[in-house]
Amino acid sequence: MIGMKINDFYMDVLKETGNIGAGNAATALAKLLKKKITMDVPKVKIMVFSKVSELMGSAEEPVAGVLIKILGDLPGYILFIMEYKTALALADNILMMNRVTGVDLGELKNIEISVIKEVGNIVAGSYLSALASLTGLRVRTSVPGIAIDMAGAILSVPAIEYGKVSDVVLYIETKFSEGTADIKGHFILVPALESFEILMKALGVDSK
């Protein structure tokens, strides 16, 4: 099973899909924000559960998570997660609002939540289409779900899915920049149990 043995080749392929996916995402974001967006080469990382909650700094760090269900040849989920203040800045940017102070979680309006959700949807969708074209697999996505809460709480969702097959979580760190502002985000791809092998096969990796 792949959960046990994540080899270098698999990592390289994920990194490459991450690279292409993030490239697509940067283009999409640039269109949305009407600004020039640059990106770093994504990093693929493996983390044990006990450290997962600290992915965004503290487990209590407020973050925005957008979860999308993957349908088609590669059932599973993809989570895109970014810091709350980054998400808010993005939403403000798109909605053309100039705020002097931050907004508490409870005071977020539906329109802001919708914008954050859509940004996550675009970014994660771009990553998925890269994965689909590299593997030749056909994937569709669901309407996204959003949660704005403690990092640990949101990350427990993909971690639990990984928990069924392994003791680690695999994720892709992507950093976009707009001018001097960094938009740091993480993708966590959560293939359904049967999808691990489908993915390996499509990537031409021997999963035995």
């Binding site: 909650s53 503290s58 487990a59 209590e60 990092a151 969702v157």
Partner: peptide, 11 residues
């Protein structure tokens, strides 16, 4: 003693 855990979600 004091025990703590941060950010319980579905766990």
């Amino acid at each position: 003693g004091i025990l703590a855990t941060l950010g319980l979600g579905s766990c």
